[in-house]
Each structure stands twice: as C-alpha cells, then as structure tokens.
C-alpha cells in the first residue's frame, strides 16, 4: 500500500474511534444500544482495524502513534463502559418476594399508595436513577 493511502486509512481509523463515543450518546434512546453499546463497539473495531492495517509494516512514527491513540481510546472506553459504569450490588432488591408498601406524592402533590394502585390491577414499578 502506498504511503498516502496508508495515511488516509490511519486518519479514517482515528475518526472512527473518535466518533464511537458520540455515536453511543446519539443512540442512547434505544434501550438495546444503550445497554450493549453495539454501535460504538463496531465503530471502535473498524477504527482499530483501519489504524492497525495502516500502521502495520510502515516505518513512519506518525502512523504508529495514531494506531496507539486508537488503542488508547478503545481502552478508555472499555474501562468506562464496564468498569466505571458498574453499579454496587443491590442490597436486598433481588431477594424481595413481596413489594414493600409505600405512599408517595405525585407531580400534583396527591398521595399515591401502592396498595391503592394494585387494587385496580398489576403494577409496574420503575425506579429511575435521574431523568435518564
């Protein structure tokens, strides 16, 4: 492969790796993509491959540095995705057999109780972490 094409391939690889986190954030509304990060892994893999192929057998330091940057982005993302994002083991949530009763205010200030809600049918309780 000629040098100029290698350079272009290396830059493409870097672009793909840089785009991966943005692609993840842009597709967070789709639960399966939020959970698995599928799009960003595909982009990272393609970027690493492009960067690796461009740098392989090329003596230019720049291409190797770019491949190193690709690898660093992928490593940071992996650590963040699996390591920093891990949650503490829930204290008892897995073992509850009956739902503890509660009463809480809704947005209009009316008190809503679980007992009242389930009297009219099954209830899906969703605990939100924040607005996301």
């Amino acid at each position: 492969m000629e040098g100029e094409r290698r350079t272009r391939l290396a830059l493409l690889g870097l672009g793909l790796c840089l785009a991966a986190p943005f692609a993840y954030y842009a597709t967070m509304g789709v639960p399966v993509l939020l959970r698995t990060g599928a799009i960003c892994w595909v982009l990272l893999a393609a970027g690493l491959l492009a960067g690796g192929v461009a740098a392989r057998g090329d003596r230019r330091l720049g291409l190797r540095l770019l491949a190193g940057v690709d690898a660093a982005i992928a490593l940071l993302w992996t650590v963040g995705f699996f390591g920093l994002a891990s949650l503490p083991a829930p204290k008892g949530a897995e073992r509850l057999e009956t739902a503890p009763e509660f009463s809480l205010p809704d947005a209009a200030g009316r008190t809503v109780s679980l007992a009242d809600a389930r009297a009219s049918g099954p209830v899906l309780l969703v605990f939100f972490r924040g607005v996301w």
Partner: peptide
C-alpha cells in the same frame, strides 16, 4: 439503582430487573 418490579394485585413481585451497570 435503576430497576423494574412487576407487582401483582396481591403485592407479590412476579418479575424484576435490577441494573448491574448504569447503562
């Protein structure tokens, strides 16, 4: 911690999902 519980009329938890990662 993000979680879902499906509670039946008697108050029994019939199904749950508790997140292990924030995503």
């Amino acid at each position: 911690i993000p979680a879902n519980f499906l509670v039946d009329r008697q108050g029994a938890i019939r199904w749950r999902h508790v997140a292990r990662r924030i995503q």
